[in-house]
Amino acid sequence: MSVQYKVTERINPTDLTLPKKFYARINNGDDVSFDELVDLISKVSNLNYGTVVGAIGTLIEVIEMQLIHGRKVRLSNLGTLFLTLSSQGTDTQEEFRSGNINGARIRFRPGPRLQKLIKKLEYEKVSLASNTTPAA
């Protein structure tokens, strides 16, 4: 199965004076909802819908608790979730206060299985016309 992409013209965000160039962009399909994901998991496993909802809900709660404690959460072949901080720098360590922290982000580093998937991808170009939605 090929990943579909389209070609679009974009500016170079690091130098707006440069001429526009054409780049590949993923041709995203529609989103998979939580309910649809749970339904798919229950169909390919021996778990019923409610069990899958409960397990994923519990997983989310446990991930939150572990991230708050500064732990990396390794999800086997899926990958690793971890927090990073953005902050304003100070000249000395003593000057630094929690007010210098601008915010946090949850980051994801794919595991071996997903990294292997990326290396095996094939690509298929689609026309822009096939990507437009009809007018109402």
Rank of each mutant, 00 (worst) to 15 (best):
S87Y: 09
R25Q: 12
F82R: 01
M65A: 14
K20F: 04
G54L: 13
V73F: 10
T90I: 00
Q88G: 04
L16S: 14
I26N: 00
I101H: 06
Q66H: 11
N12G: 05
N27V: 04
N48F: 09
V7E: 13
L81Y: 12
N100L: 04
A135D: 15
N27T: 07
S130H: 13
T90F: 01
V7N: 06
I101V: 15
K116H: 02
M65T: 08
N100Y: 05
N77M: 08
I63M: 03
S98E: 14
T8D: 13
L40S: 10
K116L: 06
P19Y: 02
I11T: 13
S87F: 11
A55Y: 14
S33P: 00
S2K: 01
G70Y: 05
T84C: 04
L78Y: 08
S2E: 05
L121F: 05
K125P: 09
F34T: 08
G89L: 07
E9N: 10
D39T: 09
D35A: 04
A55N: 04
V7M: 15
G79W: 06
F82A: 00
Q115W: 00
L117V: 04
A24H: 01
G50L: 12
I106M: 03
M65N: 12
V38Y: 00
V53F: 13
T84S: 14
L85T: 09
V126T: 14
R105A: 11
S98R: 11
G29C: 09
K43N: 11
L16W: 08
K21R: 07
M65G: 13
K116S: 04
S42T: 03
L37A: 06
S86W: 07
N102S: 12
N102D: 13
I106F: 07
A136C: 06
I63L: 01
E124W: 01
K43Q: 14
F96D: 02
D15M: 07
R25D: 11
T14Y: 07
G99F: 04
I63F: 02
A129E: 15
P134A: 14
Q4K: 12
G29M: 04
V62M: 07
I26P: 04
Q88E: 15
K6G: 13
S42Q: 08
T84V: 12
L67P: 02
N46F: 10
G57I: 06
G70S: 04
E94V: 03
G89H: 00
T133G: 15
K72Y: 13
N131D: 15
A55S: 12
R10A: 14
T133W: 15
N48T: 02
G111S: 06
N46A: 08
R113Y: 11
Q88P: 02
